[in-house]
Amino acid sequence: MTFDLADTVRKLSASSRRNYQNPYESIEWPDEVDRAEWFTTPEFVSLHGTPAWDGLPDERRRELSFWEAVNFFSLNIHGEKRLMEGLAHRLYQPGLEGVAEYLHHFLDEENKHSIWFGTFCNRYAGKVYPDRQVDFPREYADGEEDFLFFAQVSIFEEIVDRYNLTMGRDESLVPVVRQINANHHAEESRHLVFGRRIVDWLWREWVDTWSPEVVAGIRAHLDAYVTATWREYYNPDVYRDAGFADPWATAREAWDHPATRAHRAAITKFGLRPLVEAGVVSP
């Protein structure tokens, strides 16, 4: 494999060292939070625009926004666990030696983010929502597993970043939530650059070696990954904690509603942009 990420790795690693954070000092944690405040930007609450949302009084919308924040941070914890496992697995892997320097920073920063998310969930909700994703072992063509790993990381982080960007600037949210989102966005900016570059590089390196069936399988897998990623944002556990009588029907109705479809489509457009630019998927 030819390696053309050296400049990116050098610049991003230097930026990570300049912006090195102590995760225990970078967030101001109040002893408790008032659930009558806002924790998720209303337009980013999963029920926004649906009849279930329209029928909720303001205080229940705010309570729901708290559990939505717990879910957002929980799904980040689970996503980052998979990410850290994948990054650690690829440290000094043959063919990826040239990015090892930055993978160390990537791992370090993801671990710090999970400390923030876990602290919020455990301190204010007393729990992290469980992960419903399960991995089955399967066979891959040469280069396919690494490509899919970094492509999935790119999709996951690009979607999360749209939430971080909005909520990190939303003055109506409680400060601790705003601060976690703003800090996460700041650090993820480097990861997004790395994700775009490595996806583009791996695609160019491998695509001509793959059969049309493998390429079609990759595209189908990424399409399914986008759906699976969004499913986590419509969590019945959230609706149960927020007092909905039938949390599964609430989740299903929210998922199927045109307003939430439009929300997902708008953000997915950003999420898939690196893969579109690399020629992996169509716009």
């Binding site: 399914a224 990954y225 499913r231 019945p236 299903r252």
Partner: peptide, 19 residues
């Protein structure tokens, strides 16, 4: 596939009305 399991679990929960 592994990417469908979370969705299937939600369906199972709804059918049996228990998490």
């Amino acid at each position: 596939t592994s990417l469908q399991v979370a969705d299937l679990l939600l369906y199972i929960e709804e059918v049996r009305q228990a998490p």
